[in-house]
């Protein structure tokens, strides 16, 4: 094909300019900001004070930030295991030819279209309520009094209460990704396997699982990206003042950027930028690790 350089340049210029201005400039500016002390996000560069790497060093020396990273790691790991395995299970069941598939799929996906604020209020003020909550009523009906007495939102249980509520809303989304991956696999493989005498579990183990490697990678990356941006649920589970059990790096970033609670506290957009850079690096790291560890290009189907 004949290449027409002026045309290529003409067509690419708007997109390249758009990318440079809207994506690349903020990224570079954020990286630059992370080396400075900046009181307000709107301060001009002349008002910045150079700090070198001290924003990063101070962050890792602050126990609250380390706690927020630990919380996020647990959300990513435990939540990832729960959400990805549950969503895979539902995905496999829904694509196995069961009746009312569309109804079940809609039900499982439903929490995704309900506002997080409404969902969190339901969990906080109803499901976990130690006075009239769903869990209390459920365990009381089963005469499991020790479980019925648990205060799910006290310091010992709050993190897991948050994690469970969050996972509840995330299963449907990842289930759809699994479904799309499973539906790509030709039914002929399963028919052949059935004729050869393979049961459902063997079919999953030897056909579905190996052919879903690419989708698994997509799911892990998507889960990592959404986990790094975990914010709303943290805010909803600890209104006004942050909480050691629900704080995550993004909520710590918010505190540093806009101040904490009702008291006017020191603000530092530079520290917030450093947190943003750290989170971005984590996503890149996980994505690279996924690419190295999971090879999906050895199978063609």
């Amino acid at each position: 094909m004949k290449k027409n350089k002026p045309m290529i340049i003409l067509f690419l210029t708007p997109a390249v300019l758009f990318f440079l201005v809207v994506f690349l400039y903020p990224i570079l500016r954020t990286i630059l900001m992370s080396f400075f002390h900046i009181t307000s996000i709107t301060d001009g560069i002349g008002e910045w004070t150079f700090r070198g790497l001290s924003n990063y060093i101070n962050l890792f020396q602050t126990s609250l930030f380390r706690q927020s990273c630990w919380n996020l790691f647990r959300i990513w790991l435990y939540g990832g295991i729960i959400v990805l395995s549950l969503s895979l299970l539902f995905g496999v069941i829904l694509t196995s030819g069961i009746r009312f598939k569309k109804v079940f799929r809609a039900i499982i996906y439903l929490p995704n279209i309900v506002s997080a604020v409404a969902l969190a209020t339901m969990w906080l003020q109803y499901v976990y309520s130690p006075k009239f909550g769903l869990l209390k009523s459920f365990f009381t009906a089963l005469h499991l009094d020790s479980l019925a007495k648990i205060q799910w939102l006290d310091n010992d249980h709050k993190f897991y209460a948050l994690l469970f509520a969050y996972c509840f809303g995330m299963v449907g989304y990842h289930m759809l990704i699994w479904c799309s991956g499973i539906e790509r696999i030709s039914p002929e493989y399963y028919e052949a396997a059935t004729i050869d005498g393979a049961g459902k579990f063997a079919q999953f183990r030897f056909i579905t699982r190996p052919l879903l490697k690419g989708v698994f990678k997509t799911n892990v990356t998507m889960w990592t990206v959404t986990s790094m941006a975990f914010f709303v649920w943290s805010q909803l589970f600890s209104t006004v003042t942050a909480d050691t059990q629900t704080i995550v790096p993004t909520s710590y970033l918010y505190i540093k950027m806009f101040g904490a609670g009702n008291t006017v506290t020191d603000r530092d957009a530079g520290v917030s930028a450093a947190i943003g850079v750290i989170l971005a690096l984590v996503v890149v790291l996980v994505f690279t690790a996924c690419n190295k560890l999971i090879k999906d290009d050895d199978l063609e189907f």
């Binding site: 126990s63 310091n155 003042t241 942050a242 909480d243 904490a260 609670g261 009702n262 008291t263 506290t265």
Partner: peptide, 19 residues
């Protein structure tokens, strides 16, 4: 007094104090 009588003045300590 200002809010919470200043006990929230150190944002790195507030969640720990609260807990």
């Amino acid at each position: 007094y200002t809010w919470a009588v200043g006990v929230e003045a150190n944002e790195d300590m507030t969640p720990i104090i609260k807990e």
